[in-house]
Amino acid sequence: MSYFFQIVVSGIVVGSIYALAALGLVLVYKSSRVANFAHGQIIAAGAFITYFLTVTLAIPIFFSFLASMIITFFLAMSVERIFLRRLIGEPIISVIMVTIGLGSILDGLIYLTPFGSENFSFPTFLPHEPLSFGGVSISWTQLVGVIITFILIGGFSWFFKKSTVGISMRAVSDDQFASMSVGISVPKVFGLAWATAGLSAAAAGCIIGNITGLNFDTLHSFGIVVFPVIILGGLDSILGAVVAGIIMGLIQQFASGYLDGNFGLFGTGDVMPYIILLIILLFKPHGLFGIHEIERV
């Protein structure tokens, strides 16, 4: 039975981290209807900034973590200001193409630094010994990752539901022209959406980097790995990202734990989440929590 619960815990851990990594994509999509293909590079940048502050500047890792979120907040805001602001009102596909180009530019910039082609590891700051209860274990890294994920997701959910700025962002997401007509600054909302996405990406980068080590290719690939999560969750739903992330994590772990190596099956841990995704989308084409917009002509 402990095997079953261990897999449940692992699935929730992996799923929570997927949800945090997906959060930035949701935030940008929620406000601007744009899929950001440079998200993985921002995840990596956040992790490397934390490492640089911690190891090179000898700042305690907790403060480095906070500082990297603040830095990526402004970095992402600047990116939006420089590259994307002038595309407001242009076709969405143009903006998406710009994010692809932006990803290449960020790739190039990171490759100019040692982080582009070397492996690093955060200094140890949590106990080595895992927490164990009833035969189920979870590492401190994973536990802290899950706690940070839920704090951030809870914070963002509150922000979008209760704060004036958050409500403005949802309004812009619903209808840009109507929002402008009631005095909401659409450019400011876009900037803020990118900035908050940058902040969450930095948090995700630090947590993933702490688990896998700091390798640029591994880190930036998570920008793409989590796309199925936001599709399943419904693209613009924070709750959807959380639920879908955990579903994906659980499916992956259960498939790997119970199907792989049995019945002549291998690699189902990687494939099964996509199969389940396709099946769910057959019945819920807008994802689990996506808004089904009805257009009347």
């Binding site: 897999i7 692992s10 992996v14 790997s256 734990g257 792989d260 291998f266 841990g269």
Partner: peptide, 17 residues
């Protein structure tokens, strides 16, 4: 067993298996 890995964040299920 032959395992082809992916971008795994947690190998618990595989290792236990």
């Amino acid at each position: 067993e032959v395992v082809e890995h992916g971008k795994d964040l947690d190998n618990t299920a595989m290792l236990k298996r």
